[in-house]
Nucleic acid binder design. Structure first.
Length: 572
RNA sequence: GCGCCCGUAGCUCAAUUGGAUAGAGCGUUAGCCUCCGGAGCUAAAGGUUACAGGUUCGAUUCCUGUCGGGCGCACCA
């Protein structure tokens, strides 16, 4: 709404000063100052330019400000302050017309189309199909789904994908574990596989198997049958939980199809063709001084990938001595497939225990000639569930851990998502279950939803009295009105910044500030009062606030309730 | 030993990709309901941004080192 005019105006100013270049125009940065006394928008353009031109920044800023084409419909003044900031202040007309513009755009307000319109894939959750989704998956699901929405809102063609690891040891182990559970059920003595999965959910799963075919499979020792059964049910289970949580995926991609199609084999051939591999018992390059150096005993020669050429501290096995690929090879094939499907960027959300895989994968992709900026891995950091001030123990081994489903039952999907999205994705997160369970003023998710419910309540109250938002525009006179309007005007910039930086947490923080600004306005400015014209003018602002909060919450996948029940203890 | 993440108010965390006087919530203290939802608002108090250097107009942010916490360092995925 103003980002583009400001950029264009500054570019025009540079042109008229004879200072324009394409690179400089691209470098123009705009921000909303924290302190409103510094204006409504600011640019630091003069300062980096001053260094380049070896001119005093303050004087350069003055020249840029003077050369900025007058735009009285949007900006009342362009001033220079501090070491060389160029500050812009909205004209009264701009702020007066803002609610109408927001209301005309409705759900579109906040969206942009001046991004580059790239095809971007977000791969997230991709949990192993061997158990229920845990809390890190819950966090990743909230972040991934929001990133998809953010990128779409800023003009990209983005979609989510779930990668199903349905090949390799662990799913064989899953099948064997389920077979053992089924044998238990039908009273056949069976040895439980070493390192098998012990969770109670596998006993449940074994109970759900159709009895006759399962008995037959057991009789012929067909563990593959159990594997496929378990896999399908496990994936369906995870999918149901994610649906209920509101995380959507355009595609569920099975690793096994990479093996079946020959992609894995072709990827290996290509790596060999590019002289990226060698066969040996031990790596030729190993600068890691780990104490866990593994001595292969009788496994024979493995195929190693020369990731050390790309900064890795050691080469990595891609085909084991027994001829089976490690996780890395299909992973490389998978990402090559993504590129072939036309995605310009692949953003992967991985758990904290996988960061060691980033470099080997990136090295292989680079060796295959993919763009260096194709892959971006975001690590979704660990979540500590806290209850009563103590961490809740989560042990997958013992089969006792809090799952995504438990979390939804406990605190609700809205609240869980809001809490996950409030924090930076790469930071460790203490999730306070007690706080999230409280439906009161201490809970930030409710604070924002409450503001929306209150806005809707005011609009209802006004409508009952025959008052609708005005269509005519009149300048704001109260500080609370102006501050709220200013806050609402920044929403598109917040969305743009959050998408560009891949930082969803900016949206919840903006919503909390907006809710606070609205509550301040509400206490300062009576909306539905004796002066019908004033009431109808303020209703514009209230309705615009409704739209902004609703749009922000929609980006997070959190509902915007029009009414909220008061908890019993607060009802009196 | 090596790599990655992190260290900001008593606690949990922000700080607009290097910007102006480092901000919120919780907790503490003192106020505000004749009225549109008090799940709210106002104010006070709380800081050597772990520590030491460096880069520059300007550093919580970037670089180096030290200390502390977490995770990883398999022919598992």
């Amino acid at each position: 709404m103003v980002w583009k005019p400001l950029t264009d105006g500054l570019a025009a100013a540079l042109r008229s000063l004879g200072l324009w270049s394409e690179e400089r125009e691209r470098r123009i940065e705009l921000a909303v100052p924290r302190d409103a006394t510094h204006g409504d928008w600011t640019s630091n353009l003069a300062m980096p330019l001053a260094r380049e031109l070896k001119q005093p920044p303050r004087a350069l800023a003055e020249r840029i400000a003077a050369a900025f084409p007058p735009d009285p419909e949007r900006f009342a003044e362009v001033t220079v302050a501090g070491p060389g900031f160029v500050n812009f202040r909205y004209s009264p007309e701009f702020l007066a017309g803002l609610p109408n513009r927001i209301r005309a755009l409705g759900a579109e307000f906040g969206c942009h189309d001046h991004a580059h319109g790239l095809r971007i894939q977000i791969e997230y959750v991709s949990a192993n199909p061997t158990g229920p989704l845990n809390v890190v998956s819950a966090r990743a699901a909230a972040v991934g789904a929001t990133l998809v929405r953010l990128l779409r809102a800023t003009g990209h063609d983005a979609e989510g994908e779930f990668y199903i690891n349905d090949a390799g040891n662990q799913v064989d182990l899953l099948g064997a574990s389920v077979a053992a559970r089924f044998a238990e059920r039908v009273g056949t003595a069976a040895e439980f596989p070493a390192n098998g999965y012990h969770g109670e959910y596998l006993a449940d799963l074994a109970r759900q198997l159709p009895e006759a075919p399962a008995r037959a499979a057991l009789a012929r020792g067909d563990l593959g049958w159990f594997r496929e059964q378990a896999l399908d049910r496990m994936v369906a289970w995870q999918r149901r939980d994610l649906d209920d949580y509101g995380a959507e995926f355009a595609n569920w991609f099975r690793e096994s199809q990479l093996h079946a199609s020959g992609d894995v084999a072709r990827t290996l051939e290509e790596l060999i063709g590019r002289d990226m591999t060698y066969r040996a018992v031990k790596p030729e390059v190993d600068k890691s001084a780990g104490d866990r150096g593994v001595e292969p005993e009788d496994s024979g020669e493995a195929t190693w990938l020369r990731t050390s050429r790309f900064g890795d501290d050691k080469d990595r096995v891609i085909v084991k001595g027994n001829g089976a690929p490690t996780y890395l090879l299909p992973d490389v094939a998978y990402h090559r497939d993504k590129r072939r499907r036309g995605f310009r960027h692949a953003i992967d959300l991985w758990g904290p225990d996988h960061h060691g895989h980033i470099l080997p994968l990136a090295a292989a992709l680079e060796a295959l000639g993919l763009e260096a900026d194709f892959l971006k891995v975001m690590i979704v950091q660990q979540v500590n569930l806290m209850a009563g001030g103590q961490p809740v123990k989560m042990s997958k081994r013992a089969g006792e851990f809090v799952s995504l489903r438990d979390l939804m039952d406990e605190v609700g999907a809205d609240c869980a998502k809001f809490f996950f999205l409030m924090r930076g994705t790469s930071t460790h997160l203490d999730f306070d279950l007690d706080l999230a369970k409280q439906q009161n003023d201490e809970n930030p998710a409710y604070y924002v939803q409450y503001a929306h419910a209150r806005v809707c309540s005011i609009l209802r109250y006004a409508r009952e009295r025959g008052l609708e938002p005005a269509t005519a525009e009149r300048p704001w006179t109260a500080d609370g009105e102006r501050a709220l309007a200013r806050m609402l005007s920044t929403f598109p910039e917040v969305v743009r910044g959050a998408a560009f930086a891949r930082e969803p947490q900016r949206i919840p923080l903006f919503l909390m500030e907006t809710a606070a600004e609205f509550h301040r306005f509400y206490h300062q400015c009576r909306v539905v009062g004796d002066d019908a014209e004033l009431s109808r003018a303020r209703l514009q602002l209230v309705d615009a606030t409704r739209i902004v909060i609703a749009n922000g919450l929609a980006l997070l996948g959190v509902t915007a309730p029009e009414r909220m029940e008061r908890p019993a203890e607060l009802a009196s």
